[in-house]
């Protein structure tokens, strides 16, 4: 009934997502391209159609393959309907960093995205939300000025409309090519969240594989509720850097969602097939939706 409190929006429909699996997960040559999919973790071969119906989760070992932002939006929001905001923000090259401009163009072409996060509005289980979804296939999900600005604007939109905020993170860390400007996005997003949460705003953060460095050490770790997909690698420093520091091999489960759950760093590990239902249940616990306006 509280749904009626929120005004209805016009929605744009997300274009259907390409059927081709990501390059890193492309099946070996003997398997007809696109028809079959091999799990990168256990090697199990499955019909691609079956695998996609399974939300790109391996039916044998449960490995959750990485999704791009559009796939995630399509499977999370009601009817895949999504009203995108700030779609035209694009990265510049403020440091004139060698090779950055060319790499940006190449990343745009290969991912079909303009930067590493897509933000907008939609509904989950009938509850209107502001959503941001990061995409690892654009520049390893790295956070530069555009990611920081879009996330901040999403937070501000949620605050202005008193809607819950939901962010799916995946990131290799800060974008080195924007150095200090990139670093400051951590402070910018965190400061915006501080304001939003002080005003009673609800922020649900979902870690997906992988979330590291500057994104993990800023907004993604500041959720009122923090969830993660099974097996997602979440941490600050990367495994290789740590292994070099401590001169020891780290266990296989290091920095997995399950490791982080055990160490008290998140609330729940949620299987992809259960994510939407769980988010719906969680959102419904917050009658009034987002920032409290005294109602």
């Amino acid at each position: 009934m509280f749904k009626d409190l929120f005004q209805k929006k016009k929605y744009a429909t997300v274009p259907s997502v390409s059927q081709a699996p990501a390059a890193s997960e492309r099946p070996k040559r003997e398997i007809p391209e696109g028809l079959m999919n091999r799990c990168p973790k256990c090697g199990n071969i499955q019909f691609s159609k079956e695998w996609e119906k399974n939300l790109k989760v391996c039916s044998t070992c449960g490995h959750h393959s990485r999704l791009n932002a559009l796939e995630r939006i399509a499977m999370t929001l009601d009817d895949g309907r999504f009203f995108e905001i700030d779609a035209d923000l694009t990265s510049e090259d403020p440091l004139e960093f060698p090779g950055y401009k060319a790499k940006l163009e190449q990343q745009k072409a290969s991912s079909g995205l303009k930067d590493a996060v897509v933000t907008g509005e939609g509904e989950i289980g009938g509850v209107p939300v502001v959503v941001g979804v990061m995409s690892f296939d654009f520049f390893s999900g790295s956070m530069g000025s555009v990611v920081g600005e879009k996330v901040t604007r999403a937070i501000e939109l949620a605050a202005a409309k008193k809607l819950p905020l939901l962010l799916f993170s995946t990131s290799g860390g800060a974008r080195m090519q924007e150095s200090i400007l990139s670093l400051m996005q951590m402070a910018k997003t965190s400061a915006a969240l501080a304001k939003f949460q002080e005003e009673g705003g609800l922020f649900i953060s979902v870690f997906t594989d992988p979330t590291l460095g500057g994104v993990s050490a800023s907004f993604a770790s500041l959720g009122d509720y923090i969830l993660a997909e099974p097996g997602a690698i979440v941490g600050f420093a990367g495994r290789i850097v740590i292994e070099q520091t401590i001169r020891q091999k780290l266990p296989d489960n290091f920095q997995t969602a399950e490791f982080n759950l055990k160490h008290g760093q998140l609330d729940k590990v949620v299987h992809r097939k259960d994510m939407k239902a769980f988010l719906t249940k969680l959102l419904e616990m917050h009658v009034g939706g987002g920032a409290s306006d005294g109602q």
Binding site: S190, A191, Q197, A217, S221, F236, L250
Partner: peptide, 25 residues
């Protein structure tokens, strides 16, 4: 920040993020 296994286990990301948020306030 120190890149170590125990630092990660105790929430290195969370500790940094919290400082950013709380310093803003």
């Amino acid at each position: 920040a120190y890149p170590g296994d125990s630092a990660e286990a105790r929430g290195q990301s969370e500790a940094i993020a919290r400082n950013l948020k709380e310093m803003a306030l």
